[in-house]
Design a protein around this nucleic acid. Structure first.
Lengths: 333, 333
DNA sequence: GTGAAAGCGCTAACAA
DNA sequence: TTGTTAGCGCTTTCAC
C-alpha cells in the first residue's frame, strides 16, 4: 500500500509538498499541485490517519458512550451529535458501555479521541477519575460531579407534573420501574419521583418500587420482568417507568394478564422516543430533547477543544399527555 | 501527560522493558516488573494506542456501518458483533452512513480499522472499489458482489411464505412499502416480493409500490408518509413493509384514518425487531437473525485478519405470524 | 534477561 | 514557493 513517500517520488516533489496539497495548508503552485494529484490517483494513495493523528496530536474523532445501542434514546442523542460533528470534520463513533467496566472505558480513552460524551445513566468513576477524564476531553450527561463542561436534563418540572397529573386522575398507588438499582448514587429520576410522590400525598410503599438487576439485554426486557412483579402488588393503579422501553415491556406484561391500559392501569414513560406515539395506546411520557442534547454536547466538546473553555447546559423536559394514563377505576365492571 | 519514556526513566529501565511488561511479550524479572509497575502507577501512565497502532500496524478496532442508529435492527447486529469482538480484545464502533457519501466511508476507512462491517442496505461502491475495500478489511452484508467473505440473509423462503399466507387469507392487492428506491441495484427484498406476487397470482400494479425518497429522518417517518400515499390507492387490503419501522409508521397512518389493523388492512413487516411483539397489534413479520449475523460477521473478520481466509455465511429467515394480518374483508360492516 | 536503535507514516518548524 | 528534518509514542529486531 502506497505511502506519502511513494507519491512524493512519483511526482518528483518533497513529502512536505504532498502534505500541503492534501491538507491545503500552504500555497502550492498549480503545476506541482497537479503533478501531485496525478501521483495520488496513480498510486491510489490514501493518507494514513493513524500516523497523521500521532503527528498532529488530534484524531478528528469523537465518541459517545451509551448504555444500549438498542435504545433509540441514545440513537437520537448520537444523531444530534453527528449533525454538528460532521459539519466540523469530525467523525463520531458510538460505543456501548458493556457492563460499565472501567477497562472498557479505558480502552477507548487511550485511543486519543478528541472528545467523548458519556451519555450512560451510570458510570463507575470517582471524582478524581472524572477530573482525569475531563483532561482527556470527556464530558458527561447528568454527572453527579461538576467538573468542566456539564450537560443536564432538568426533570424537576416534568416529574412534578407527572405526579400531579396522576394524582388528579385519582391515583394513590403508583409503581416505579427502573432498570437501574435505586441504590445507584444520584439516581435523579428516582429521587425526583420520590419527592413528588411525597408532595402529592401518594403512597410511599417500598413494594411499589421495582428496580433492575443490571444488565438485561434491553430495557424492554427489564420492564417486562419488573411489571410482572409489580402486578403481584395489591391495588396498583398506575406506574411510572424510567424510560419508554421499560414502559413498552410493562405494556406487554399488562396485556398478557388481560388488563387494559389505561382503564385498569395507567402507565407513564420517560424519554419520548419516536416510537412512543406509535405504540398502542400512545404513551404518555416525559419528552426529553435528546437530539438537541446531542448537538449541544458536540458544541461543548468543540469549545473544549478549540477555545479550551467549559460551559454548562441545562435542557428542559416536559410531560406529554397521550392515552396511556386515565382516571383510576375506569376498568371496574 | 506521561509517556513511556518517563516510566522507563522512573523505573531506571529501558523503554523496551516497559513495553514488555505492559504487553507481556517477553519474560521480565519480577524485580524489574515491579519497579516498572510502580512507575506506571506513579505517573498514571496510559499507553497511547494511536502510537501503538502505527507501530504495530494493528488498531484492535473494528467498525460497523449502519443506515440509521435509530433502527434496533442495526443495534442487534452490532450487539452480536460486540459480543465476539470484546472476547478477542477488539473494540467496535458504530458509524452511521449519513447520506451514503463516499467521502464519509472513506474517512473511516483511512482510520486503519482492522475490520469493518458494511451493514447498510445500500452503498455506492463499484466492483473495483469493493475489491479495494476488501483488501482493507471491509466485509459486506447482502452485497451484490461476491468478493472475499460474504454474509447474506436468505429471504427467498420467508417472502414466499408471506405471499402465500396473504394469498390464503384472500388478499389480492397488497402494497409494497420501501424506504429505498426500487431502482436501487439489487434491492433483494423488492425482487423477491415481485416474484412471489407473481407466483401466487396477486395484483401487480405499479400503484401498489411505494418506494422512498432517501433520506428520511427514520424509517418510521418513511413508512408513515408512504402509507398515507398507499391509502389513496383503491382496494388495497394488505401491505408488506421492507422493515418493521416502516410498518410502525404504516400503523400510524392507518390508525389516523380510523381503519383497523388487521380487519380493514393487514400489515406485515420485516426484521422482527424486539419491539414488534410489543406494538399493538403484535406485528406479523419476517424474523431475521440479526444478532447471530453480528456474531458471524465478527468471526469472519477475525478469520480474514488472522487466517487470511474468506468464507461465506448464509442465514435463514422465516415468517412469524402474529396478529397484524387477517382475512380480507373482516372489517366490512 | 535487558537495552539500543531503527522504523511506522505523517506534521510542522525551519531552511533554502 | 518548496524541501529538510526532527519528532509524535510505540514496537521489534538484534546485540549485549
Amino acid at each position: 500500500v502506497a505511502t506519502r513517500y511513494d507519491v512524493a517520488k512519483e511526482a518528483d516533489v518533497s513529502e512536505a509538498t504532498v502534505s500541503h496539497v492534501i491538507n491545503n495548508t500552504k500555497y502550492v503552485s498549480p503545476e506541482l499541485r497537479q503533478r501531485v494529484e496525478k501521483a495520488i490517483k496513480l498510486h491510489n494513495y490514501r493518507p494514513n490517519i493513524v500516523a497523521k493523528s500521532l503527528a498532529s496530536k488530534s484524531t478528528k474523532h469523537v465518541g459517545i458512550f451509551v448504555d444500549s445501542i438498542m435504545n433509540p434514546y441514545y440513537g437520537e442523542i448520537a444523531h444530534g451529535m453527528e449533525e454538528v460533528a460532521h459539519k466540523h470534520g469530525y467523525i463520531v463513533s458510538l460505543f456501548s458501555a458493556v457492563g460499565n467496566s472501567e477497562e472498557h472505558f479505558s480502552s477507548v480513552i487511550q485511543r486519543q479521541l478528541d472528545g467523548l460524551l458519556m451519555a450512560t445513566t451510570w458510570n463507575p468513576f470517582s471524582l478524581s477519575q472524572v477530573k482525569f477524564l475531563h483532561d482527556n476531553g470527556v464530558i458527561f450527561i447528568n454527572s453527579r460531579f461538576e467538573i468542566g463542561s456539564s450537560l443536564r436534563f432538568e426533570y424537576e418540572y416534568a416529574i412534578d407534573s407527572m405526579a400531579k397529573y396522576l394524582s388528579a386522575l385519582g391515583h394513590k398507588r403508583v409503581g416505579f420501574l427502573s432498570g437501574l438499582s435505586i441504590k445507584t448514587p444520584d439516581h435523579i429520576r428516582y429521587e425526583l419521583f420520590l419527592s413528588s410522590i411525597k408532595k402529592y400525598g401518594l403512597d410511599m410503599d417500598i413494594e411499589l418500587i421495582i428496580d433492575g438487576e443490571y444488565p438485561y439485554e434491553t430495557s424492554y426486557d427489564a420492564g417486562y420482568e419488573a411489571m410482572k412483579k409489580l402486578l403481584l402488588v395489591p391495588r396498583v393503579t398506575a406506574v411510572f417507568c424510567t424510560n419508554d422501553l421499560i414502559a413498552y415491556g410493562a405494556y406487554r406484561a399488562i396485556n398478557e394478564t388481560g388488563l387494559n391500559i389505561p382503564k385498569d392501569i395507567s402507565v407513564i414513560g420517560c424519554d419520548d422516543v419516536f416510537l412512543s406515539q406509535c405504540i398502542y395506546p400512545p404513551l404518555t411520557t416525559i419528552r426529553v430533547p435528546t437530539k438537541e442534547m446531542g448537538r449541544q454536547a458536540m458544541n461543548l466538546i468543540l469549545n473544549e477543544i478549540h477555545e479550551k473553555q467549559s460551559a454548562n447546559v441545562k435542557l428542559k423536559t416536559n410531560l406529554v399527555v397521550r392515552e396511556s394514563a386515565g382516571p383510576v377505576g375506569a376498568g371496574k365492571k
